[in-house]
């Protein structure tokens, strides 16, 4: 099993799950992570392809995914649309919208053939080729590095910044926030935009690094898995990071078994999900305690 493959697979899960975490802790469940990743993936391909710079693609992905987050924020926070409905609606907009954009640009509904291929910048560690772990890290895309940094960054945000405090307060005791003269909705806006930003990065990794090009529906449920990882990680930064990474590992394990054994594909492909169910079951009691600790009733 290749560590570099695991890193590549885990990065989108980690980033998107972190995005879901920020939104969720601010009191907004981001069920639209799937759509944000999808539109981010397309925007990345277009940005990088037409400008010739991978970073522009990354930026485009971030902007477009944040735009979707803004739609969600406007409709949920201001126009009081039901959160889950609005999230599912954003996913529909992404599923249909990506294909319509693709169609208008290339006349194709399936993939981005015909758009110049771009690639995310890669960061290499000089002289790391022969050091076991570093060798796998070296040459990974900038997004993989960002995913690695996301844990300390989130922890810093959580415990050392006001925004982190506000985000947690927005989800846990809104009244405290209001009493300190803050508007919970502004905090939720910030959390949602950050969530979109992270999901956009995750999408860019899928379409500019792991593969080069966009294919319709290519996110294939990874956004929902990221949401699941966040809950599995008990809605904490470390837990979310570990759970999301675990999905990367399980993907890789399934792939190895698919290539090296003759097990039924359907059984192998469901391994990650069954594993999560088991972990969820075994961890259930502990999770419940954690949740109760968060402040509230389970």
């Amino acid at each position: 099993m290749l560590l570099s493959t695991i890193l590549q697979n885990a990065a989108p899960y980690v980033l998107a799950a972190t995005g879901c975490l920020l939104a969720d802790r601010a009191g907004v469940v981001n069920i639209a992570s799937e759509g944000m990743m999808l539109f981010g993936a397309l925007a990345a391909v277009l940005g990088a392809g037409y400008s010739g710079f991978g970073l522009v693609g990354l930026l485009a992905a971030i902007v477009v995914a944040s735009l979707l987050a803004a739609i969600l924020a406007i409709f949920h926070l201001h126009l009081r649309a039901n959160l889950i409905l609005a999230g599912l609606a954003v996913n529909l907009l992404a599923t249909g919208g990506t294909v319509l954009v693709l169609y208008s640009l290339t006349g194709r509904t399936g993939d981005s053939s015909g758009i110049p291929q771009g690639s995310l910048p890669e960061i290499a560690i000089p002289g790391a080729e022969h050091v076991p772990v570093l060798a796998s890290l070296s040459g990974q895309s900038i997004v993989v590095w960002l995913a690695l940094i996301s844990l300390p960054a989130t922890l810093y945000l959580w415990h050392r910044t006001r925004l982190g405090l506000y985000i947690r307060a927005a989800g846990e005791s809104e009244s405290a926030l209001v009493e300190s003269g803050l508007r919970p909705n502004r905090v939720r806006w910030a959390a949602l935009l950050l969530s979109g930003l992270l999901c956009g990065m995750a999408g860019a990794q899928l379409s500019l690094s792991t593969t080069h090009g966009f294919v319709r529906d290519m996110v294939a449920g990874r956004g929902f898995i990221a949401l699941g990882a966040m809950y599995l990680g008990a809605r904490t930064p470390v837990g979310t990071f570990v759970a999301a990474s675990l999905f990367g590992v399980l993907d890789a394990v399934a792939t190895v078994l698919q290539v090296r054994t003759n097990f039924s594909t359907q059984i192998l492909l469901s391994i990650p999900y069954v594993a999560i169910l088991l972990a969820l079951f075994l961890n259930g009691q502990r999770l419940r305690r954690v949740r109760r600790g968060i402040g509230g009733v389970s």
């Binding site: 409709f75 649309a81 609005a86 609606a89 907009l93």
Partner: peptide, 20 residues
């Protein structure tokens, strides 16, 4: 194209649920 309908569904849901 089918996707017009999908996009439309998404938009309609947003429009219908915008309540306040």
């Amino acid at each position: 194209p089918r996707e017009v309908i999908t996009t439309l569904q998404g938009f309609l849901i947003l429009a219908v649920t915008a309540r306040a």
